[in-house]
Simulated scan of single mutants.
Amino acid sequence: MSKGKILIIEDEKKIARLIQLELEYEGYETATAHTGTEGLSLFQSQQFDLLILDVMLPGLSGLEVLRRIRSTNQLTPVILLTARDSLPDKISGLDLGANDYMTKPFEIEELLARIRVWLRNQSTAIEENPLLQIGDLTVDEKTRMVTREKNTIELTPREFDLLIYLLKNQNQVLSREQLLTNVWGFDYYGDTNVVDVYIRYLRKKLDAPYSTPYLHTVRGVGYMLKE
Rank of each mutant, 00 (worst) to 15 (best):
M1L: 10
M1V: 12
K5A: 15
I6R: 00
E10L: 05
D11Y: 11
I15S: 03
A16N: 06
Y28D: 11
Y28S: 11
T37W: 01
E38K: 15
L40G: 01
L40R: 00
S41A: 12
L42E: 13
Q44I: 06
F48L: 05
L51K: 01
L51V: 15
P58L: 02
E64V: 15
R67C: 08
R84L: 13
R84M: 12
D85I: 04
I91A: 02
I91R: 02
I91P: 02
D100K: 01
K104S: 06
F106W: 07
E107P: 01
I108G: 05
E109M: 11
E109V: 15
E110K: 05
L112R: 08
L112S: 11
A113V: 02
A113Y: 05
R114E: 11
R114P: 12
R116W: 00
R120S: 11
T124L: 13
N129V: 06
L131S: 04
Q133T: 15
Q133G: 08
Q133P: 03
L137T: 09
V139S: 05
T143W: 06
M145T: 15
V146T: 14
K150G: 03
T152Q: 09
T156F: 03
T156I: 10
E159G: 00
L166S: 04
Q170G: 00
N171W: 07
L179Y: 08
L180N: 10
L180E: 09
N182H: 12
W184K: 08
D187K: 08
Y188L: 09
N193R: 13
V194F: 06
V195T: 07
D196S: 14
R200E: 11
R200V: 15
Y201V: 02
Y201W: 07
K205C: 08
K205I: 10
L206F: 07
P209R: 07
S211A: 10
T212A: 06
T212H: 05
P213C: 00
T217G: 01
R219K: 10
G220T: 11
V221A: 09
Y223W: 14
Y223G: 05
K226G: 08
E227F: 09
